[in-house]
Amino acid sequence: MFSVNHQKFMEMDELSLQKVPYFFVIDFLTENVEIYLENEIEKSGLLIDFQTFSTTKNKQELHKKIEWKSFPETLESFKSGFDKVQENIRLGNSYLTNYTRKTRIETNLTLEEIFYHSNAKYKVFYKDFFVFFSPETFVKIIDGKILTYPMKGTIDASLENAAEALKNDKKEKAEHYTVVDLLRNDLSMVADEVKVDKFQHIDFIKTQQKDLYAMSSEISGNLKTEFRGKVGSIMKKLLPAGSILGAPKPKTLEITLNAEGYDRGYYTGVCGWFDGENLDSCVMIRFIEKENSTLYFKSGGGITHMSKLEDEYQEMKNKIYVPIH
């Protein structure tokens, strides 16, 4: 259904086995895999700001009042894809499907300004084509141990007892359990002794529009011998990321492509920094893309049999924000 870029994954393996540092960017369908050696990053037009690695020199001041408008599709339009997803869940073809949309936005911020002034764990500005400010780690590899931190479930932080409500919400809980289970299985393909270290951890995310709570867990394992030092092989095995696709993966991918009816491109792909020893990578969410001169924000959420149309529509809209404050 989609072509995997085998050659590039092999290149990633060669570099990581030789302990050569590099940055990589992989799109949602693993068709485009880009590799940048450390000395190539600057001239490539990429700006990167991870917790462990940054190419940004100095923070620039922002001397303007932020203008921000979004133009979400109608509930009816959102419903047509939502219904396709729910129908497939009802038929047993999927038990969790991530359904995403693209929303036109207008702002007086440039993509580069959004990159510089957003607060997030992972930020990348990609050649004036897209920018993202992601809170979600994909996998980390530290001394032969692989860790993943699936994030599923968000709530408006201004609601009463929001963090507790999120933890105890039946639908969000079921969704979180499913993703943890899926990623535990995924990790087992490349690691032994896989276990859940932290479950339903609540993170606070501050934004210009509204504050949110998000729920995540931590899963870890010891890399199998045949995957040690092979970052490309690990990525090839684990992608697309379970948290932004659903389960079971092959059928859910089919459902997603049919229901969404637009090209995700790099959105919900992954990118990462290999420092010669260890790896830190993230899922490319909270994502703004430029098409000609129009900006689009891509966002969505997980759908289960318990999902309610209005709630999912609202969640998709809640995620259209910039974390600048």
Rank of each mutant, 00 (worst) to 15 (best):
N292D: 11
L159I: 14
V194E: 04
G144A: 07
G300F: 10
Q18A: 07
Y36L: 04
T154V: 01
D13E: 00
I205S: 13
M215H: 04
K69Y: 14
E254K: 01
E34N: 01
R184V: 00
G265D: 05
T30G: 12
K195L: 10
L182F: 01
L29A: 14
A191V: 00
Q208H: 15
H325Q: 14
V231P: 09
K237F: 11
E312Y: 08
S188L: 07
T154F: 15
E73D: 07
T256V: 12
F2Y: 11
R101V: 09
E112N: 08
E277V: 10
T294Y: 13
K65V: 15
E218T: 06
V131Q: 05
Y36F: 06
N161G: 02
Y262W: 14
P323C: 13
T56V: 10
S299P: 02
G81W: 00
G246Q: 03
G261F: 05
L91W: 11
Y296S: 06
V33A: 04
P240Y: 03
E277Q: 03
D280Q: 12
S80F: 10
L75A: 15
S299V: 08
M1A: 11
K84F: 12
L295K: 03
Y313G: 12
S217A: 12
S217H: 11
F24R: 04
G153E: 07
K121M: 04
P72D: 09
K236F: 15
E160S: 11
R104T: 12
N98E: 06
R184I: 07
T52C: 11
H201S: 12
F274I: 04
I244F: 08
K198G: 01
T107Q: 04
K57I: 08
E260Q: 00
V25H: 14
A157F: 13
